[in-house]
Amino acid sequence: MASHPMIIDTHIHLWRTKDISTLAWETPESPLFGTYDIPRYLKSIASTPSSYSGFVFVETDRKYTDPKDPSEDLKCWEHVLEEYRFVLGLSREPEWKGLVRGIVPWAPVHLGREAMERYQKLLDAVDAEIYGGEKHELLVGFRYLLQDKPQGTASLPKFVEGLEYIRDTGRTFDVGVDCNRHTLWQLEEAVPVLKRVKGLKIVLNHLSKPPLGREPEGGIARWRELMTELGETQAAVKLSGGFSEIPPTLAKDGDEFPEQKMISMVLDYARPLFQIFGASRIIFGSDWPVCGIGYENVMGEQTGAWPEWFKICTAVRKQLKEEGGVKGEPEDWDGIWGKNALSVYNLKPQ
């Protein structure tokens, strides 16, 4: 039996018990209230093929405020800086050696270039604290969620400045929009801005968070037009986040997860994205532990979400490869699991 291609999970979140109060969305009522650390993650992926080769950590929406002047930077950004310190520290622990392949922290993109430069100096100070003078190459991009921001945020001049700064560093910009709980206005605002910043490396999170099982408000044709426009940039798309968009009507089939129904719903959106971006610009991610929420709504527990999503992604990839109509060499299709992420995020090879 042929070995599985290299696997890099390009989208996971981690936090400790002491971090809970610093998460902007966490409450005691949340299904994710608790500690989600590396041991818990590794337990969730225990059935993964031996070709598993680590993960990319993505910021977890820590609390922050906007400083009125540079003297307030440390206070306003203390929680996001602590998150970076925490994950960078994990990469130094012998027990987890090689697991942390990249880190995508939050950044004050909306405050412009000058604020981004100040923020980078604070990240550099954390680097010096954890790594001394050693270069680690783990800071591979920045993320800023548009899905919970006011209309007009992405088109502000300062936001464009922030994107231009990211481009000039050669790092990626992870963008989060939500086409399920909102209309298409976030994409309609963001896509022209992302196209405007020539040379920016973009990663679209979670297939754009589409409303699985139905069309987005604004229509699937308009959604596809926007995705086609985004495809004209240097954007990649994460095959991730599907369980968060499960319709409330989806119920388990006996004692099993309704895998075929889920595959069909994901294909409705993955198919046009594969056709637009090609296999070389698709990367696998789990969105752990958030993937457990929708899965738990169906199955009554979070356990099993990671391997089930992996199975669904395997079936989606197989179906689309067999159908044809998607650009990509065999290595690009295999690269969806990990190798494509090496170039998308400029990850250091092992």
Rank of each mutant, 00 (worst) to 15 (best):
V237Q: 02
D127V: 07
L123S: 04
L145V: 15
K238M: 07
R171C: 07
P216I: 04
G241R: 09
I246G: 00
D174C: 11
E245H: 00
G112V: 09
L250H: 01
V140N: 05
D174G: 04
A154E: 04
G162D: 07
E114V: 13
Q186C: 01
L226Q: 12
K121H: 11
V175L: 09
N180H: 06
Y165N: 12
R143P: 08
G162H: 03
E225W: 03
N180A: 11
E134L: 13
D148E: 13
L187G: 05
I220T: 01
V191G: 08
D174E: 14
R181A: 14
T172R: 03
E215D: 15
E188L: 09
T233E: 06
K149D: 02
I220N: 00
G199E: 10
E114L: 12
Q151A: 12
E129G: 08
G218T: 10
V237T: 03
G112K: 04
T153P: 00
A115V: 10
K158E: 15
G170V: 13
H182M: 07
L194W: 00
L123D: 01
K149W: 00
K121W: 05
A115S: 14
P157V: 10
T233C: 09
Q120S: 03
F142D: 04
G112H: 04
G141E: 05
Y131M: 11
V197A: 00
P216R: 07
G219P: 12
I166A: 01
E117Q: 14
R181C: 11
K135T: 12
I246P: 00
L139A: 12
R167L: 08
E245W: 00
S155E: 14
Q234R: 15
R113K: 15
L187V: 11
E215M: 07
E134Q: 14
S244Q: 13
R171I: 03
A221F: 09
L123F: 14
H206M: 11
K198A: 14
D124Q: 13
V237P: 01
P211K: 10
R224L: 08
R113T: 15
S240W: 03
L156R: 15
L122W: 04
E114K: 14
H206T: 07
Y131P: 01
P192E: 13
T233Y: 03
K198C: 02
L184M: 07
H136F: 00
L156N: 04
Y165H: 14
M116G: 06
V175C: 10
A154M: 09
E161K: 02
I202R: 05
S208C: 14
S244G: 14
R196S: 15
D127F: 08
T233W: 01
K201N: 11
E229Q: 15
L230D: 03
L239N: 00
L163V: 04
P210L: 12
P157Q: 03
R113Y: 12
G141A: 06
P150F: 02
N180T: 03
A115W: 05
G242D: 02
N205M: 11
T153G: 01
E164C: 01
T249C: 03
C179G: 14
A154T: 08
G242P: 01
R224P: 01
P150D: 02
L122Y: 05
N180K: 10
H182N: 14
V177R: 05
G162S: 10
V175P: 01
L139F: 15
R196F: 00
P216H: 09
S208E: 10
T169C: 08
H182L: 11
G162M: 11
V237Y: 09
K149M: 13
G241P: 06
Q120M: 02
R214P: 00
L194T: 03
G141M: 04
Q234C: 02
I130Q: 06
